[in-house]
Design a protein around this nucleic acid. Structure first.
Lengths: 320, 320
DNA sequence: TTGAAAGCGTTACCAC
DNA sequence: GTGGTAACGCTTTCAA
């Protein structure tokens, strides 16, 4: 009865249509997605698994922008986004991966490279279309594509900039939890600063977490040893904390030393002085992943297996 | 065959188990969630619809924390979170509401009160367990519960604080998009400042959006007219932009005027001076909503129909 | 301990 | 234009 109507606008006599509509209203009828999915073998949903030990994983401004971009694109095609954050150690057991309830998956990995590799290979074996964000491994399975940004170049751009500013020593501040993007940023930074005729010394300092207090404490301790010409932090939030630590230690930025970060979302503008940063197209990354994934579902293969978006140096007052 | 095994650890002969395990590995078998859901009439997933005209709706630090709290709690009970952001005008058409693919729903509403009321009533008619965040309407349907925080008290606390600081005129900066929380904050602020023997003048100023530049411009324009004793912004991000506008206009905070915001997540600490703010338990709100919703699914009713979490004034340098 | 059968709500197909 | 039937993959029940 309802069926005939719901064959999606098939020709129906006016009287019948009225009848059906009345019944729908009366019974408060809404189609059951599970039954539909089962019958059609389509799920209309994409899963997103985020390996992050921080329970507030969505606070990361990069991740929240990426998720917005992805979710909005999916929404526009009537797909839903199924999110789950999971501690890196418990990645493989994640419910979102164990059940086939999503037609496709996206993943954001972190942790030591070996662990990430393991997670990456595990994803490849699932046999579902999958997009992994910001990863360096080459897609091994045809089901897997990688969407990222050129963090290596970002690091280099910032390195070149500092070199032009005449910096002779740099401290790079990064969180203990390993992220592929951070590794690349550091690598690019070192390439621009160390490997030349006039090498600039780069020293890495690890903070317990990305939280304000941890970064603030670590940088304060570091400044107690010796004041570098510049501090580069893995993210703008961390750079903001470093800035505060400088202020707290009576150092003026950019007069006594320079400070810079990465991402360029909001934080860079809140601080005094405003931060020099490398702008990430996080929202775009999410949207592109959505496009690739739905294209893959429709046409059966990825047009490209890796996408790398450009990043852009944005000079602020902190390195002026 | 596989069935017997998957009756979830029912007694199985060792040889059979091995056989089944081998088959699972060989076929790369994963149970189909749709079929399972259909059979059991359970979905193992909760939907979250966020009415926000900003496509980057998840960037809002309140929302991202709330979603983290909700999603983590759901994860811990093997539930999934299905997110969709939708423009307030198109709320009722949202895919996430039209299909029964989630056992329960959460909603964050915004926009003019009348529109919100309409959305609220629409949700009540869906007949599914639903939690609405930060809303003032009383739950009409037994399916609906409300989880919020005491923004009215937050506004009052901040108002009292400013009064103690001897403030005589206050500008309240809020975004043009109406949020229930912002209304309450303003109301509380006015209660503390206006309705007394020595009333303090409160003037509301509306910004196009919550974005840095919009707030910065609006506040700069406002400062051109007359400098109030204090600026209170609807959120810390907006307060940070206001702070920058003051700085830009050669005004020193807190010497020339005071500035304060709401939420107390991160931004308050990035600025110079650090911001006075009212701390929101956003992560907790998400977690509590998860508890209520899953409790409701299990036991058939909400133990409470409204929950209101306390907020706390945190004094920073900007009103010292 | 194993397996056969029924049924969840939907859609595709095919008679009427 | 309409409606009956089968099948999607799973779990429950019950008989072997």
């Amino acid at each position: 009865m309802t069926v005939s109507n719901f064959v999606h606008g098939k020709a129906v006599r006016v009287r019948t249509r009225k009848l059906v509509e009345a019944a729908i209203a009366r019974l408060n009828y809404r189609p059951n997605v599970s039954a539909r999915s089962l019958r059609l073998a389509q799920e209309y949903s994409v899963g997103l698994v985020i390996a992050d030990s921080d329970p507030e994983y969505l606070n990361d401004p990069f991740i929240s922008r990426l998720v917005s971009g992805l979710s909005n694109y999916l929404s526009s095609l009537d797909f839903t986004l199924d999110v789950q954050g999971v501690a890196p150690e418990r990645f493989e057991g994640a419910t979102i991966l164990r059940k086939v309830g999503n037609e496709a998956l996206c993943a954001i990995l972190c942790g030591p490279r070996a662990l990430r590799k393991q997670q990456f290979d595990y994803l490849g074996r699932l046999g579902q279309p999958i997009i992994v964000f910001r990863e360096i491994f080459a897609p091994s399975s045809p089901h897997v594509a990688i969407v990222g940004q050129d963090d290596l170049s970002g690091g280099r751009q910032l390195g070149e900039h500092l070199r032009e500013r005449g910096v002779r020593s740099v401290v790079f501040v990064r969180p203990s939890l390993e992220w592929c993007a951070v590794e690349q940023r550091e690598k690019g930074l070192r390439q621009a600063l160390e490997g030349r005729r006039n090498p600039v010394a780069v020293r890495s300092v690890v903070t317990v977490s990305e939280r304000f207090n941890d970064v603030h404490d670590t940088v304060t301790r570091e400044l107690g040893r010796r004041t570098p010409d510049a501090i580069v932090a893995a993210t703008d939030s961390m750079a903001a904390a470093a800035l505060k630590a400088c202020e707290h230690n009576g150092l003026r930025v950019p007069k006594d030393l320079l400070v810079a970060g990465f991402n360029g979302f909001d934080v860079w503008g809140y601080t005094s002085p405003t931060l020099t940063t490398v702008v990430s197209p996080a929202y775009e990354l999410g949207r592109i992943a959505g496009e690739l994934l739905l294209g893959r579902l429709k046409r059966g293969r990825f047009p490209r297996r890796t996408v790398s978006m450009p990043v852009r140096l944005q000079v602020g007052q902190s390195t002026a």
